[in-house]
């Protein structure tokens, strides 16, 4: 079946099977490097995307369900190839090491701050709880989110 959706601001049309996951379509069919397979079961968040501004594990989302919707990956936060202020905070705080979980972490931070521009520490920890990072110990990620928050 053909579906169409806005991917990082661009309209795409793609032929999918009803059983295809969004992750499969984004990575295998559309060749995106901004979404990563980590566990395939919604435990790690490496595949996270925003669907109409809501966080989704793309490994657990049917591609067909995003028809006519807006899908944002971390690449969609760039403006004119430049880092967004939030992404810059990740760099300033050393919040990435191997980088595999980073796109998901940035999107979680965005979703949180869009909804709640000045979250408490507790709210930041809770927001990040669905995303695993094996490198950083989370400390700099929390710092990055904090520094991007409105005080």
């Amino acid at each position: 079946m053909m579906i169409r959706f806005y991917l990082d601001g661009q309209l795409v049309e793609v032929d999918v099977k009803p059983t295809d996951t969004l992750l499969k379509v984004l990575v295998d069919k559309l060749g995106l490097t901004s979404v990563h397979y980590g566990c395939g079961e919604g435990s790690c968040g490496a595949c996270m995307v925003l669907v109409d501004d809501k966080l989704r594990y793309s490994c657990l989302t049917f591609a067909a369900s995003v028809n006519d919707k807006k899908v944002t990956t971390v690449a969609g936060l760039l403006s004119d190839h430049e880092l967004s202020p939030l992404q810059k905070k990740f760099v300033e705080n050393n919040a990435a090491q191997c980088g595999y979980c980073t796109p998901g972490m940035v999107l979680v931070a965005k979703a949180l701050l869009d909804k709640n521009p000045s979250p408490s520490d507790e709210e930041i920890f809770d927001a990040l709880a669905g995303n695993l990072c094996r490198c950083t110990g989370y400390v700099p990620i929390v710092k990055a989110v904090k520094s991007a928050a409105r005080r």
């Binding site: 990575v27 397979y37 690449a75 880092l83 050393n94 990435a96």
Partner: peptide, 21 residues
Amino acid sequence: VKRKEDPRLVKGESVYVDDIR
């Protein structure tokens, strides 16, 4: 010094083995 690696990682531009086609 801020990491030279980071821009490509936070942009989602890095090429891991699964990105090789």
